[in-house]
Design a protein around this nucleic acid. Structure first.
Length: 630
RNA sequence: GGGGGUGUAGCUCAAUUGGUUAGAGCGCCGGCCUGUCACGCCGGAGGUUGCGGGUUCAAGUCCCGUCACCCUCGCCA
């Protein structure tokens, strides 16, 4: 085999006259009898190899042996094609290689899936034969864009003085949060490591070690049920810095985002792709900021899709409290939530059956129902209109700012969460119908002022809404609440605080120093300023019900580190996979990962997870038990 | 864990109310063709209808179970 001199896709008219050697895969073969053409493909593109009876009839006969996906090396002279034989469909369409010698480096069986850009087939097959799927141009471009994204981020962070530090993959089980993957230890029979859900605590420890600025392209693992935008292992750009204000972190990360967009846009390799990132308008820092409260009020979600920013939800609690429709009135009296969406000009867009389907979807999310009303010249029509007297109709229309021809969708429920879930989804659906979900537009914003705690009423427990290492905005008040809790005798901190005269509303209203970056309704990064003092950390642990002993056992290393002069610090983490999905306009995370797992967490190509030998289990001190009968 | 969808040739899909030998396009194999580029033309091979059970004179089609994949709710500090 001769040394390769050029890549197939790189040859142009400037190479005419040169004798070259190219290597690659047979993409297609077109045999016309006295003349034959082989399209040879490599990472850079495709080039036409030409064989003819006139030039070398023995060589032409040899091409019979070359079949699809065979690996060839071919040597020949680059020739300009005749005017009428040129093609625009390939970058190399103006030239061809008149082959003098070629060699079959390897044969290939017929692949299960075809190597073509517009392949349409069952995703299962693509996963099973991933190494073939990845031969396709869109997949190779995706991987190139992914590498470019990471290198742009890396270059920016290094220029800003950040140090790439690797943290352990064999970590420790943490009972809170997502489920861990556990790894049995042979040396310590019966004991387990866990794979990290994120390097959160290690990056804090890096700050305490005085590294000042840390980053890592880190693999994270969560053993939760999969979704279109979730994988059991995924990659984060993980960042932490010492002595920052929130604005410092935000400004830094805006630079990273701008560099990522820029890097892919300016890369010549991607100019033939139809990715949103290549055609969308500029994403220019500084990005706008929105409070959590505002996001929830207008969009019922903490990651609003601002491509449809004017399509806002309307709260109807006040209207409902005085209305004649008992279902709404009852919810208002029980301090529930009533929210509605004005769907402009859509009164005629939904059939009765389609409205029923919307209600079915809402009920699937826990709603009792989903009211619909059509706005007419004279008032309201359809659905629950007959239960609402005319003056109340007028007031409602006014509350919505509705016009004749509008459709109103309203959901009421005692549980605010249910209403938020339903109305958020309805808003997305209507935005889509209105053509406001164009993947080629990017609407990016920071969401700030998140709640410090989430309150779960069922068991009267508080949870850290981000993670328990996030610095509260009002550490003084948190300390006072923790002191009240410590003084009480009731079993739970919430009960102790209530007994101590604290209103639960006040606790829920506490805010933290968290910031999320949201684009088109997707959370692409999230971070916070952390607690750097043991007393701050102890106060929060107290309020979320982690006892001193428990904190010592689970996070003793952190508490100890904080006590050794931890600097104020904070950071951010960004999901590479979701970010890339967004930039490329894809809607499945598997399409931006070289070797992804299926929706049940299996790798269909290498077939894992799988069984291991009983002897190994014995060595590990692990015993299999039968799946419990239902 | 709940709900929905899909499963027929290598691939994408057909197959009437349950009824003859389960078809088509692409791909694959063979032949022909001196400028193709989604080449064309002629011919051919290729099927455990995901798997298991049931109903029936008869099942790709109906019923039960099961497996895989996809979507979704829960879950994802």
């Amino acid at each position: 085999m001769k040394n390769r001199t050029h890549r197939c896709g790189d040859l142009r008219t400037e190479h005419v006259g040169e004798t070259v050697t190219v290597c690659g895969w047979v993409d297609t073969k077109r045999d016309r009898g006295g003349v034959a053409f082989i399209l040879l493909r490599d990472v850079a593109g495709k080039v036409q190899l030409t064989f003819s009876e006139e030039t070398d009839s023995a060589l032409l006969a040899q091409t019979k042996e070359a079949r699809g996906e065979f690996v060839l090396s071919a040597t020949g002279k680059v020739r300009a094609r005749e005017e009428e034989n040129r093609t625009q469909t390939m970058a190399t369409g103006d030239i061809e290689i008149v082959v003098e010698k070629f060699e079959i480096l390897n044969t290939a069986v017929t692949p299960a899936i075809e190597v073509r850009d517009d392949l349409k087939c069952d995703p299962e097959l693509r996963l099973k034969h991933r190494f073939i799927d990845l031969r396709r141009r869109p997949m190779q471009a995706m991987l190139q864009a992914r590498a470019k994204l990471v290198s742009s981020a890396r270059a920016t962070l290094e220029a800003e003085g950040f140090l790439d530090v690797e943290t352990p993959v064999l970590y420790k089980r943490t009972p809170e949060g997502a489920r861990d993957f556990i790894v049995p230890s042979r040396a310590h029979r019966g004991q387990f490591y866990a794979l990290p859900q994120s390097p959160q605590l290690f990056k804090q420890l890096c700050m305490i070690s005085g590294l000042d600025r840390y980053f890592q392209i880190a693999r994270c693992f969560r053993d939760e049920d999969k979704r279109a935008d979730r994988q059991p292992e995924f990659t984060q750009i993980d960042i932490e810095m010492s002595f920052p204000t929130m604005d410092d972190v935000i400004e830094l990360f805006e630079k990273v985002v701008a560099a990522i967009f820029d890097g892919i846009r300016r890369d010549e390799r991607f100019k033939d792709q139809s990715w949103p990132v290549l055609s969308a308008g500029d994403v220019k820092p500084p990005f706008e900021r929105m409070t959590y409260e505002q996001a929830m009020r207008d969009y019922s979600i903490d990651r609003p899709d601002l491509r449809s920013r004017d399509l806002k939800l309307t709260e109807l609690n006040e209207w409902s409290a005085g209305c004649s429709f008992n279902a709404f009135k009852g919810v208002a009296e029980k301090k529930g939530l009533i929210k509605g969406l004005r769907c402009p000009g859509m009164a005629g867009e939904f059939s009765t059956g389609q409205l029923k389907n919307l209600e079915r979807d809402a009920k699937g999310m826990g709603a009792t129902g989903l009211a619909n009303l059509k706005v007419t010249e004279t008032g309201l029509d359809g659905g629950i209109a007959k239960f609402i007297p005319e003056p109340e109709q007028k007031a409602m229309i006014e509350a919505f700012g509705a016009k004749p021809g509008d459709l109103l969708l309203i959901c009421a429920h005692e549980k605010h969460k249910v209403v938020h879930a339903v109305m958020h989804n309805m808003r997305l659906l209507i935005a889509d119908k209105l053509g406001l979900s164009d993947p080629h537009k990017f609407a990016i914003c920071w969401v700030v002022d998140f709640p410090l705690f989430e309150y779960r009423e069922e068991d009267e427990k508080l949870f850290a809404s981000h993670h328990p290492f996030t610095l509260p905005q009002d550490v003084q008040r948190v300390h006072e609440l923790a002191e009240i809790s410590r003084a009480g005798k009731e079993p739970h901190p919430v009960a102790r605080m209530l007994r101590g005269g604290v209103e639960i509303e006040e606790v829920i209203a506490l805010r933290n120093n968290q910031y999320d970056l949201v684009c088109n309704g997707i959370e692409i990064a999230g971070g916070s300023i952390r607690m750097h003092r043991t007393d701050y950390q102890a106060d929060v642990f107290e309020l979320i019900g982690i006892s001193k002993e428990e904190a010592e056992k689970k996070f003793g290393f952190l508490m100890s580190a904080l006590a050794h002069g931890a600097p104020p610090h904070g950071g951010i983490a960004s999901g590479v996979d979701r970010l890339l999905m967004l930039l490329l306009g894809l809607d499945n995370i598997a399409d931006v990962i070289a070797f992804p797992k299926s929706a049940t967490g299996r790798d269909l190509m290498i077939d894992t997870p799988n069984d291991v030998e009983p002897a190994l289990l014995e060595e590990l001190g692990v015993r299999m038990v039968a799946k419990p009968e239902k």
